[in-house]
Amino acid sequence: MHKSSSIRRSVGDRAVGIIRTLFLIIMGVIVVVPFLWMLLTSLMPDSKSLLVRPFRLPWPPAFQNYAEVFRSQPFGTYFFNSIVTSISATVLSVMTVVLAGYAFVFLEFPFKRFLFLLVLGVLMMPSTVAIVSLYVTMSNFHWLDTYWALIIPFAADAYGVYLIRQNFTSIPRDFVESAKIDGAGHLRILFQILFHLAKPSIIAYTIMAFKWRWNDYFWVLMMTSSREMRTLPVGLVMMRNEDGGTQWQLIMAATAVVLLPMILFYLFMQRGFNDQYMVGGVKG
């Protein structure tokens, strides 16, 4: 339909077309150039070659910079910590959020509305509203500089409860009722029926939760003090601060080590990533 009516395009429309293409090219360059600059720098043989003008492509590429990052800095440990804390927090959070969502939609209990309001209340709290008290709490628990501090506070999430509840409400109650008549318990209904019916939204939430944990910097910075407990983002910033900004080829290799896993994860899981916005909907 668009084709047939666009045969006789006016001059104005053609101008719009040209401007559009130009705009997309410029924005594409803006998005790509930082990544390109990071990768090019990360393959420079040494810090002296960064100063050569006019700029020359790193040839042969110094892939050993990546090995050097893992050798000279504990990036292996950082990587391990990032993986362990992100995955544990995500798995726990998906479980608690799905259980709570189930209770809010398929079970009857007193104070339901009030309890849900409490969930919405958490949504309104900025992540940093209580850092002073949280720091003291963690210290009292003797959780500072341990995995516990990086996992347990994220073992549940109000946005997740809200999202999953929203999604469960759209599931026909008949499915659940007939399963109950067949004698299925709540856990069986949850795992055998709802997990399948709500799969897209559960996957979308899983990706979202993982992304939040993987990218987090503030919390880890506050709660950890030793090298052994740092995650990738904090380790990278510390590396740059210690270096003072001279060995940029190594710092950029380390930056790539932090950024690339999430980008690859996104490219593989694109459907799920995009679903998170469809599921969340515009209603917020």
Partner: peptide
């Protein structure tokens, strides 16, 4: 319902509501 809500609300109370009031 109690068992299903307990984990999430334990986190909300310990790491959200209590710290807010304490702050």
């Amino acid at each position: 319902a109690f068992l299903f809500l307990l984990p999430a609300f334990a986190v909300f109370f310990v790491f959200k509501y209590y710290p807010l009031l304490d702050s």
